[in-house]
């Protein structure tokens, strides 16, 4: 038993973090910067990370890259294409379709989804507006065509990976929101002192960090389990991770809004962009508490 990341995994995480830091949006205005998005798209495409699974990457490695992209609010597709690649290796420019819409679809041409032992593909239509300002949904256009078959076990594995990937995005989003709030608490002054020096503010941020640490621990196990545990056990681990990470991320993002005060409730503050991304990742492949109907490992 040794649940530390390997040296290679840490290098992958660091590379993903650098890319996100360099080209992710640093302010709300950057969300409309087409030049930046084009450079980001080119850089992400060049990494090959959208095909992590068909390149043999484990669930742990997928989770690390997705987490860093969530932390850096990366606003070109990754999570959707990674899941599409796992479902239909080799499908070009593909993301996933869920509940009648293409997800994480900016610049994607087709959307794939599992249905009753088959993998179906649909053409991606125009982008739509939703809660998430960084990852866009799109309409589906035309007929769904079968492009592959899927065993029950493969379908459960894919669902598990989807829960792990969205949990990783939630963890990254929470880390980004927390860092934003801590930085602000160190510079914003009231009554002649930084607001972070007041226990009322500091304790919210301390709680947030504990929630993030718990999320890391629960997610790491679920991400490992994708490839290493029997399908039903891996799915159980992923459900637990998703529930924990979703609640933690929402709480941490709400704290980030609160710590920013009035500014935190304005469009120009990145806190709501992170909160919105957390809401979207919680809602994509949701887990209900009632699904935790069995005991401990």
């Amino acid at each position: 038993m040794d649940v530390r990341l390997t040296a290679e995994q840490r290098q992958l995480r660091d590379a993903a973090a650098r890319l996100a830091n360099d080209l992710g949006p640093g302010a709300v205005l950057d969300l409309d910067d087409a030049d930046r998005i084009a450079r980001l798209e080119k850089a992400v495409e060049a990494t090959g990370w959208r095909a992590l699974r068909s390149d043999g990457a484990s669930g742990v490695e997928v989770a690390l890259v997705v987490e860093e992209f969530g932390r850096g609010l990366v606003d070109v597709p990754l999570l959707g294409p990674v899941l599409a690649d796992d479902l239909a290796p080799g499908a070009s420019s593909a993301t996933v379709a869920v509940a009648g819409a293409a997800r994480d679809a900016r610049g994607m041409r087709q959307a794939v989804e599992p249905e009753g032992g088959r993998v179906l593909a649909t053409e991606v239509g125009p982008l739509t507006s939703g809660v998430d300002l960084t990852r866009r949904d799109a309409e589906l256009r035309g007929n769904r065509e079968q492009i592959a078959t899927l065993t029950d076990e493969a379908a459960v594995r894919w669902r598990t990976l989807a829960l792990v990937a969205t949990s990783a995005d939630l963890l990254g989003t929470a880390r980004g929101a927390h860092a934003l709030a801590v930085d602000y608490a160190k510079i914003r002054e009231q009554y002649g002192r930084t607001i972070g020096s007041y226990q009322a503010v500091a304790h919210l941020l301390a709680e947030g960090l504990a929630l993030i640490e718990g999320s890391i621990s629960v997610l790491r196990h679920a991400a490992w389990a994708v490839d290493e545990l029997p399908p039903d056990e891996a799915l159980h681990a992923a459900r637990i991770a998703k529930l924990y990470c979703a609640r933690a991320a929402r709480t941490v993002c709400e704290t980030a809004v609160q710590v920013h005060g009035g500014i935190g409730n304005t469009w120009e503050c990145l806190a709501h962009v992170r909160l919105r991304r957390a809401l979207a990742s919680a809602e994509l492949f949701p887990v209900r508490l009632e699904e935790i109907d069995r005991g401990l490992s």
Partner: peptide
């Protein structure tokens, strides 16, 4: 169940 699993895995980490 969720919290207890989290803590068990946290101790492992």
């Amino acid at each position: 169940i969720v919290e207890t699993e989290m803590l068990r895995l946290h101790v492992r980490r």
